[in-house]
Design a protein around this nucleic acid. Structure first.
Lengths: 236, 236
DNA sequence: TATTGTAATTGTACATGTACAATTAATCAA
DNA sequence: TTGATTAATTGTACATGTACAATTACAATA
């Protein structure tokens, strides 16, 4: 683990240990540098990381403060590593409906930047959050990048396996979201009625080297899913 | 404008000028440094900024590459500065339904971190994208921070006014999203039926100094809005 | 009391330099 | 030709140091 990541983790622990709340002030930069025995660059990068994660915010001339969202039970949508919940870890379970190795359909191939017919693992599963149906997920993994998957892995966390066992470096993702009415075929999986509202999120996941390896379509159960996003301003 | 921001802008222009496409390689770091005549730190920060904006991605040992989303017509949800579209600017219009200065309701006060009764500007407007109804927006601005607003400003871009005319520094925001069925009262504004699906996004906007100044609830028209998010991985 | 000016505090921008890790290309061995 | 090894390329981590801008606190002034 990199030093600035390690430092960030330690600062998180510090915040937790001292039970700091929204708006509370951390020690000043110089003090943090001395306290955690790192260089200014490293501390600055650690703080920047925490800022991007929505843990703190920095105010020039004033100090470094704790930033916390006060609402519970919201899912963090944009942590590239699957589902990560707001502080409290929820219980995530999966029910695998389909698992097969197939030639890539044309529309999927476009999104994965490959040719139709290239072999892909297709995974279809229902995901539960604290015992409730959260979403239906349909994913396609390029076998050229993910050489092996099995039903056992797919029942657990796929991304965990990709990172830990296969050593893949997951980089960035493009997500496309829209809201619509549930078709009958999907509604029955979510135990909802056709025509009920639903959020659909298509995501194309890339490795750090830019190669797309996973295309997934997730349809969320509107009663059992709500999301929080902590955004940081970008200049124009 | 800061040097690294300026540099980032120039690199964007470079990409545009050379019509670089998804996956195309930029000059190597050293070359960029010489070409744009900045230090390594500045160039690194500029590139990091472009990476966060989803314009490029960097691969150690390999190079710097252009990252582009290929789908058009999607709204970028998370550019703190109101609505910014994917490359092509859309035509955004507003129809102001209400505009008044009122004592802050209790539930709003909680979100704005103020006391009930504190004066706030309440703005309710329909927003159109390319002539279609995009959403209904209800916003509350703390008068303590936004001393003056008028109907004319509210018909245009409020954030533009806050930044340019008032010189406010908009920092970060917390967004809460959920999907549900439209109630009759909102449906009629969007020219939809009660029970139709809708995405609702509550956002609390903060200044760079951490003070919340705007609480807004936006309900999107499900047929005229779809979103793109370019996410970058965060470590665990 | 209110306001203005000023100095201390504190984080950010930026430069320079060293070391290193991941990738890619070239080389060599089988 | 294939596979392993090596070397060159290229971006990232990290250290140190200077200058500066935004904030805050406090003193001076009206």
């Amino acid at each position: 683990m990199l030093k600035y990541q390690q430092t960030a983790t330690e600062i998180e622990a510090y915040i937790e240990r001292h039970a700091l709340q929204q708006g509370d002030k951390l020690p000043v930069l110089d003090q943090l540098i001395r306290q955690f025995e790192v260089s200014k660059t490293t501390m600055t990068k650690a703080l920047e990381l925490l800022e991007r994660k929505g843990i703190i915010f920095q105010v020039r001339g004033s100090g470094i403060f704790v930033r916390k969202t006060n609402r519970k039970g919201y899912i963090e949508l944009f942590s590239t590593q699957g589902f990560k919940q707001n502080l409290v870890a929820h219980d995530i379970q999966s029910n695998v409906l389909s698992f097969e190795l197939i030639p890539c359909p044309e529309t999927i191939a476009e999104n994965l930047g490959t040719t139709p017919g290239d072999m892909v693992y297709f995974v279809k599963r229902i995901r539960y959050i604290d015992g409730n149906i959260m979403c239906l997920e349909e994913s396609y993994y390029r076998q050229a990048i993910v050489p092996y998957l099995n039903r056992e892995i797919v029942e657990q966390s796929i991304f965990e396996y990709l990172e830990t066992a296969l050593g893949l470096n997951i980089g960035f993702s493009d997500m496309y979201m829209h809201v619509g009415k549930l078709p009958e075929t999907i509604a029955e999986h979510l135990e909802l009625e056709a025509g009920d509202p639903a959020l659909t999120v298509e995501t194309i996941f890339h490795l750090t080297n830019g190669r797309p390896f996973d295309y997934s379509v997730i349809t969320y159960h509107y009663e059992h899913s709500q999301f929080v996003v902590q955004a940081n301003g970008l200049y124009l």
